[in-house]
Write a protein that binds this DNA or RNA. Sequence first.
RNA 1: GGGCAGUUAGCUCAGUUGGUUAGAGCAUCUCGUUUACACCGAGAAGGCCAUAGGUUCGAAUCCUAUACUGCCCACCA
Length: 809
Amino acid sequence: MPFESNYDFKASEAKWRAFWEKEELYKFNPQGSGEVFSVDTPPPYVSAAHLHVGHAMSYTQAEFVVRYARMSGKRIFYPMGFDDNGLPTERFVEKKYNINKNKITKKEFVELCIKETEEGGKTYRALFDALGISVDWSLLYTTIGAHAQKIAQRSFIDLFQKGLVKRKEEPTAWCPFCQTALAQADLDDKNQETFLNYINFEWEDGMPALIATTRPELIPACVALYVNGNDPRYKKYVGTKARMPLFDYEVPVKADDKVSIEFGTGLMMVCTWGDSEDVERWKDDKLETRAVFTKDGRLNELAGVYKGLKIKEAREKIVADLDAQARVVKREPLKNVCNVHERCGVPSEFIQTPQWFITITDKKEEWARRGEELAWFPQFMKTKYDDWVRGLKWDWCISRQRYFGVPFPVWYCRACGAVVLPEDAQLPVDPASDVLEGLKCACGSTDLKGEQDVMDTWMTSSLTPLINAHWKDGADTNLMDAIYPMSLRIQAFEIIRTWLFYTVVKSHYHTNSLPWKTVMISGWGLDTKGKKMSKSEGNFVEAEKVIEQYSADALRYWSAGANLGQNLRYSEEEVQVGKRTLTKLWNASKLCYEHLKAYAPSACAYETLMPVDRWVLYRLQETVKAYHGGFAEYEYARAKDALEKFFWHDLCDNYLEIVKQRLYADNPYNAEEQNAARWTLYTVWNGVIKLYAPFMPFVTEEIYQGYFAAHEGVKSVHVARLPEGQAEWANIAAAEDFERAIAVINAVRKYKTDLKVSIKKELAQLVVESPVLLDAHYQTIAGVMHIKEIFSGKGTVEAGGGIKVSFIE
RNA sequence: GGGCAGUUAGCUCAGUUGGUUAGAGCAUCUCGUUUACACCGAGAAGGCCAUAGGUUCGAAUCCUAUACUGCCCACCA
């Protein structure tokens, strides 16, 4: 028998997880009828291996929306991916195994990465399942898997054929620690404290030329001095030469209005790429090239005796040597910003190497227009996208000098240098090891060298909609018409500039469309003090443990506690409230079941309902309206609030208490009135369970299966339809009429509470004075409040709504 | 330096287009075993809605500054 014991969430959650999997409840049906709702959900880095409650929050918030769509009758395409290729995994493996890249082969290293990736995937799947995330696991993709590799390589070839990806040798952001080229989006700003060094160079006439620099180690890379053309101090030197200290060579003195007269000494050292400004001047003014940094962050032979020193060491040594020559006039502490690689925190440098770039900087207006076309929830998140697009400086560098990634499908002809591409049918390929039969250059040569680099991890993850849709995969698997552009992209805000932006770029180039119609951006779940959770800070609350202790439904309840896009602090108290909600749902269901187990639902005319029934239906109608209104704007929290008020207050505290008298045996009501009670109870109970289902999928399933599934002939609450309400329920006059009866009931409750007596203690007489006659409700009021006799007359105690009552014991 | 959020009861958060005495839950206090539930019910207390101006008959809500908190963006060598 259902509803006999207490609700055992552990047993229940395990049972329904298995049931959903066995029934393939969340499996996408490509043939069915009805609108498709396709969701592009973030493939987590498997290297993270643990979900904290913040991760759980953002995945869950998105999942409310998916479950809502499913229960609105849409055909859900909800895949999951694992983003396993690329630097995050490499860094994870390097740290875990304390790897020295010189002592391990590329093959061994990649094998370790794949092993860790598989482990991580298992952990993640277990956690998502535990949370009740309703993805279709048959749609799982991994960014290092053959399918994603194929799509990524196909994307590259398509861009190459359209002339949108080019190999260029130019100064590119470089991480000396990870030893790879980087894209603009891979860089973070870091505030640092450094010194502004005032150092005397020499004018042609032998007079001291005082420059100010934060990077004296770049003196051997200096290729010009710049002044503002309007600076009276230096006007006469423009066009002359100046002499370097220590390195003893001359550089030209040039004028540029962008040089600040106020900063430092107004005399600026321009080097072979200390920063992007140097790069600009180098390009614009065709300056000499004196690249002094090596790929591993040291100085080369141009630095003479400083050769081989690390950048920071060289900086100190050069200042010391200059000081010994009395050339350092002063050192001022200075706070400035430098770019660091977001994966390792090491300052990036500019190094000139051949790299592949996707053209993006010349299309800022198109990116902005795509941003306009996209529906943003919440709207203010769009600003972050616009900021990023406006600030684009460089084309997207997609080649990485790393190991664990998708290879470029590229060979180079040793005879003529041309790029040679494989046929689409041959993809995926690995030119670093594969030899393709029959592949030859247009010049006829078969002497080809495979590209060794791998692609940026975003090069693959920016294709998730196309990976999901099996773009250009042939008629059998192609889902482009069915799911693309996708209905919804879900993600958190910190990857707008990367994942979101790059995906827009790719879809624009490949399909001349948006990748999705709508984007929903979640905030972060923070610790109780409002700080970001991290292992090193020790404020990491593991989702797994919370689920273990309080249930997945309870954790999900907390996630629904803040509006979309807002950060939410973790609160164990809120999780406990969620847990209590489960219990309350269970207990209320127990009562409903007791009175409805023998009930065969059939039609019941609205006219036959009693006032309290009409009142609760009106409240249900209002709740359903608010609920759908909330979800329409992705404001699941608003939907949850409305539902919670209805369930706890209207249904449990009032309706159930009042309707009981008509349900127990030996009651004074007639058959029609009793039937009205059962029909109404069935309707509101059913509605509440369904409305809660997107938030608390486990307990609602347990209840639904215990009673409704058989009646409705539906195999799970999660594929049932949400209540829409009925026009005749929106009877505000009926609702207001019964509100007056509730006011009287509340007055009696308060009276008994104040007297410190039980509700059950019988009251002899109640006198009701109301502007509207309430005698139709007297029986109901007397029944629920245990009053012997009620009559109309003069009241003394305000009950609200112009009603007064008097009590006679 | 520019921008986006947030700042409402001790705590976590609502407050939809400005409209009667500002809401909920938790925590606190007082009561109450009502045949679903004490993981409950009734009630009480608790807020100059960050600060200062302004618009309005009327502002938590609109405008302008300011202060914190978080984040995004920015080449000042």
